[in-house]
Design a protein around this nucleic acid. Structure first.
Ligand SMILES: [Zn+2]
Ligand SMILES: [Zn+2]
Ligand SMILES: [Zn+2]
Ligand SMILES: [Zn+2]
Lengths: 178, 178
DNA sequence: CGGACACCTGTTATGATATAACTATAACCG
DNA sequence: CGGTTATAGTTATATCATAACAGGTGTCCG
């Protein structure tokens, strides 16, 4: 781990959902992978080589990434696998809760928080239309209200998706300058 | 819950989001098509033959339907067109606001209300996992809260998706009996 | 140890969703 | 009418996702 200050759970969850990209160093990535490995270990799941490789490609960017883009990037690094293998790894990562699926783009991104690995807990996804960056913000209250609205219509809710497309802080600032 | 009077605009918006399927008569469908035609006319857009055919296939069911399913059903009726033509018609129908896209299923369904043809106004979508039925409920307050949550993260929201998967009233009742 | 078992991956094929690029035709307007 | 724009046809391809079956790997227990 780290010498100065290992990030605690609450640190990770209270950071801005859109951190500065140059915080995304190799060291950061290694920490993120380490965290994912721990999630797998805690659930007695196997963080296999392929799953780690797929996770690293997803976590290497703050943007969402499609399965075939992962496939291509692994291919560039000499790991040739079939699409189905990527999808199987993705499924395992989704089940573990270390990545999320962005429904509105059919793409995936790494979870940067520590409290989304429990089934059913879903945050609000914020996806930048300019640079692709994806952030998550908590919204338990909003999900509760959605559940109530559904029940008023006699509908029994099971899974709720809330996704927002727009401009991330960086791209918002860039647009305002122009 | 029973009236003899013809439905007015406000009636259409206040009906249950999951009407009884046997209300979906040929006459109802014709009225829905009529309403769509009026939306196109009001916006000086062309409700062409292909667009009408595609809309009829979508409006013929309360479930969501994929583009290739529309393609197949039109094919059965003798209208052979290429996928791209279906998608172009769908785009026009989406722009007009007479259908909606269900992101979590990559499928489309007819809007049964009269106040969703304005860009930006989006309801909450309720999609039944058992029978496929899709309903819409208003949720302006919820969308406002989502916008506020996004802005707190310095994110500029543009489009917000709220989709719920679960059981529609009918399937909920059926499940409770069992 | 070694066999049973569960789980993971490889291989091949295919299904499902969506768009690019170019051509042809139809509607609209002065 | 003729120019302009919107719509649709044609062909090809990109992108997203899974089925089916064979083979390999780790783990556990007798
Ligand atoms: Zn998360
Ligand atoms: Zn951005
Ligand atoms: Zn609607
Ligand atoms: Zn149902």
């Amino acid at each position: 781990m780290s010498e100065t200050q290992a990030p605690t759970k609450s640190d990770a969850n209270q950071r801005s959902p859109f951190p500065n990209p140059d915080q995304q160093t190799a060291k950061k990535l290694a920490q993120t992978v380490e965290r994912a490995a721990k999630v797998f270990a805690d659930k007695s799941l196997r963080f296999t080589k392929l799953r780690q490789q797929v996770f690293e490609e997803i976590a290497a960017t703050h943007a969402s990434i499609g399965a075939y883009e992962i496939l291509a990037r692994l291919g560039d690094k000499g790991t040739r696998v079939a699409p189905i293998s990527i999808y199987r790894a993705i499924d395992a990562l989704l089940d573990a809760g270390v990545i999320h699926r962005l429904e509105s783009k059919n793409a995936f991104f790494a979870c940067r928080r520590t409290d989304h690995t429990v089934k059913g807990r879903r945050p609000i996804f914020l996806s930048c239309e300019k640079c692709g960056a994806v952030g998550e913000v908590d919204g338990q209250h909003i999900f509760d209200l959605i559940g109530e609205a559904a029940k008023e219509a006699k509908f029994t809710p099971r899974i709720k998706f809330v996704e927002v497309q727009g401009l991330c802080p960086r791209c918002t600032a860039a647009a305002e300058k122009a």
